[in-house]
């Protein structure tokens, strides 16, 4: 099978107070939809990342429930209004129960 999913996140390191920043995330994952059949005609079981969530200093900011219609190596971008310095935690939840996380620091000033 494939290697362990690796998340990649792009967050600006610095922002002015009140500035709107765009956060872009990408994670390597096949996002097997559960709709495809293998060479023997058997359905390949579904295995997707079903939830992505972002929090800042422990407070939830944004989350996305992904369905099988999300492309492989899912990309997700969203916005955040920078008010104070802190740390983002990004979490991806896999169908198999695993969780992948990434952390990014943001300095406001």
């Amino acid at each position: 099978m494939s290697t362990k999913p690796t998340p990649r996140v792009r967050v600006p390191a610095k922002a002015a107070a009140g500035e709107m920043i765009e956060i872009k995330t990408l994670i390597s994952h096949e996002m097997e939809s559960g709709q495809r059949k293998d060479a023997k005609g058997e359905t390949i079981p579904r295995k997707i990342i079903n939830k992505f969530s972002a929090s800042f200093n422990g407070k939830p900011v944004f989350s996305a429930d992904w369905h099988p219609a999300i492309s492989a190596n899912p990309y997700q971008s969203f916005f955040f209004k920078a008010m104070e310095s802190g740390e983002f935690t990004f979490t991806w939840k896999d169908d198999d129960g695993s969780e992948y996380t990434a952390k990014n620091k943001l300095t406001v000033g």
């Binding site: 709107m20 900011v61 944004f62 996305a64 992904w66 999300i70 492309s71 899912p74 990309y75 997700q76 971008s77 969203f78 916005f79 955040f80 209004k81």
Partner: peptide, 8 residues
């Protein structure tokens, strides 16, 4: 979020 916008 400051802005209700998302892309995938």
């Amino acid at each position: 979020c400051g802005k209700a916008s998302a892309a995938t």
